[in-house]
Amino acid sequence: MNGPVRPITSAELEAHAFLHGLSARFLAELLPHTERREFAAGHTVAREGDPAREFFLIEVGKVALEIVAEGRPHLTVLTLGPGEVFGWSWLVPPHLWRVDARTLKPSRVVVVAGPALRDALEAHPEDGYRFLRRLVPILARRLDATRLQVFDVYRP
């Protein structure tokens, strides 16, 4: 059952919390490059080192970001749920995934093609700015949390 499902409509796209308020023209440009996918639990959505070409918005389910290194157990560093987004390496050279993304539950996500999104952000600086205004705080919050996780706040 992994794979694309019912296509997304422009109204659904516009209603998504992360994209809400971006210009209709901008969203319209994205729509052809956007699809909805469903994954079974335990599906690896992305692998560390793979080219990062997509931006994910979670509609349903739960996704874990993991660090996988040979000879060591997998380490989950963050889990994400409905309304949350992941995958921003398409924005940052060299456009490679830095973590594995794996579903913990059956999940439904909206996927936007990274290159197209990049082109649209370039073409519409105003929407681009708004988009980044939403993305950067999320990244900042995760960076803050990661620092405290590194600090090992509950350590003896």
Partner: peptide, 23 residues
């Protein structure tokens, strides 16, 4: 319940408690 780090046998949340606050 959320933990700072977990292996694959954990199906719960991973992340700081603040990560759970928004919702």
């Amino acid at each position: 319940v959320t933990v700072d780090a977990a292996g694959r046998d954990w199906y719960g949340d991973v992340g700081l408690v603040t990560q759970r606050l928004p919702d």
